[in-house]
């Protein structure tokens, strides 16, 4: 007695289709995983005081104690100014202010109204802008890789 051949449960075509679907799903999951990893790696906690700018005013001559005190008082009473430091001997004043609230020209005007000594804003040259304290983190190999990745996949 000849038994009839059993019908295959799945055809070759449907096997291929299932395999393609599985590969597609795996590929999609892998891609999503990579994107999530890069996004997490690139995510950074917000830097504290990110909008606080440092600026400097230079005086023509060293300041005496009384004038220095009056200048510091005028600067700290200007809206948006966070902190100031006066190096009376060198005739320099550094101050920080919130970029969203103030401009350094306004602080300079307040200083000029108070000080008898001529004062001007310190201007950073283009070459000086390109150099700075090296503790920037830019040299980290991890950051270099992430920076490269972000160029390929801009978020």
């Amino acid at each position: 007695m000849i038994r009839p051949l059993e019908k295959p449960r799945t055809s070759f075509k449907s096997t291929m289709a299932n395999s393609s679907k599985r590969n597609l799903l795996l590929g999609g999951a892998l891609l999503l995983g990579i994107i999530a990893f890069v996004a997490l790696a690139l995510r950074q906690d917000p830097v504290p005081n990110a909008q606080v700018q440092l600026s400097r005013i230079d005086f023509e001559a060293p300041l005496d104690k009384q004038e220095a005190k009056a200048i510091q008082h005028a600067v700290m009473n200007t809206a948006g100014v966070k902190h100031c430091y006066l190096n009376a001997g060198a005739g320099t004043l550094t101050f920080s202010y919130d970029l969203r609230e103030q401009q350094n020209e306004v602080v300079l005007a307040a200083v000029q109204q108070t000080a008898a000594t001529d004062a001007r804003l310190y201007q950073v040259s283009e070459s000086a802008k390109a150099s700075s304290c090296p503790v920037t983190g830019a040299g980290s190999p991890v950051k270099k890789v992430l920076a490269y990745a972000s160029q390929i996949w801009p978020f």
Binding site: V47, P48, N49, A50, Q51, V52, Q53, L54, S96, L99, S132, C133, V135, T136, G137
Partner: peptide, 11 residues
């Protein structure tokens, strides 16, 4: 982000 904030954070 200002350079002051970046330097402060990294230092």
């Amino acid at each position: 982000t200002t350079n002051l904030a970046i330097l402060s954070e990294n230092l």
